[in-house]
């Protein structure tokens, strides 16, 4: 099925087209969300929300970018929104444990282990993910898209709606910050 056929099917509410879309993009969406959120259950939840969003707003997709770029953009936006909401909850953890969220306390995350990391690098990768977690949003996004999802500068620039040189600059700053934080580790 070509991208045009897929889009035609999605716009006409065909279930087979939706299934094809999910099959084609589920790994990329999940891997990106996992890199940004560093939590398996949350990443699956966000990946599901991404496909629901795609299904609901496919009529608004103007084809000014590739379908994959649009889906990556939704994934990044939803993941960052989720991270912000998590930070807010952590900030007001005491109140939310009293009044909301089923009285569930907000737990500190354990060390994250990406399932695709080579066995001998697992310990180092866990430390790296811990410091990635402290990067500013845009640097973190660029770094994850480049190192975890292995996207090119051009693809990242399209997703973040910026230029390739801006992506290069973001990645340089991300690497500098990571080195700085590693030298101060544990914070």
């Amino acid at each position: 099925m070509t991208e045009q056929e897929l889009l035609f099917g999605l716009r006409h509410g065909e279930e087979s087209a939706f299934k094809e879309l999910v099959t084609r993009f589920q790994d990329r969406v999940f891997n990106t969300a996992l890199g940004l959120l560093q939590h398996h259950v949350e990443a699956e939840d966000i990946a599901q929300e991404v496909f629901i969003q795609v299904f609901r707003s496919i009529q608004n997709f103007k084809e000014e970018s590739l379908l994959s770029t649009w889906i990556y953009r939704i994934t990044v936006t939803k993941s960052l929104d989720h991270l912000r909401s998590k930070k807010r909850k952590k900030r007001f953890g005491f109140l939310s444990s009293l009044f909301g969220d089923n009285n569930m306390p907000v737990y500190e995350p354990e060390d994250f282990n990406h399932p695709g990391v080579l066995q001998e690098k697992k310990e180092d990768a866990a430390i790296l993910f811990k410091v990635i977690d402290q990067l500013p949003e845009n640097q973190r996004t660029a770094f994850v898209l480049n190192k975890v999802e292995e996207l090119s500068y051009r693809e990242i620039a399209a997703i973040l709606n910026t230029t390739e040189s801006a992506v290069d600059s973001l990645l340089q700053r991300a690497k500098q910050n990571l080195r700085k934080k590693l030298n101060e580790f544990p914070p």
């Binding site: 999940f30 990391v117 180092d124 790296l128 292995e150």
Partner: peptide
């Protein structure tokens, strides 16, 4: 070594 630990990373598959 930590900075290079994501080299050769296999993308995670959806559950």
């Amino acid at each position: 070594s930590i900075m290079e630990s994501l080299g050769g990373l296999q993308p995670a598959a959806a559950p």
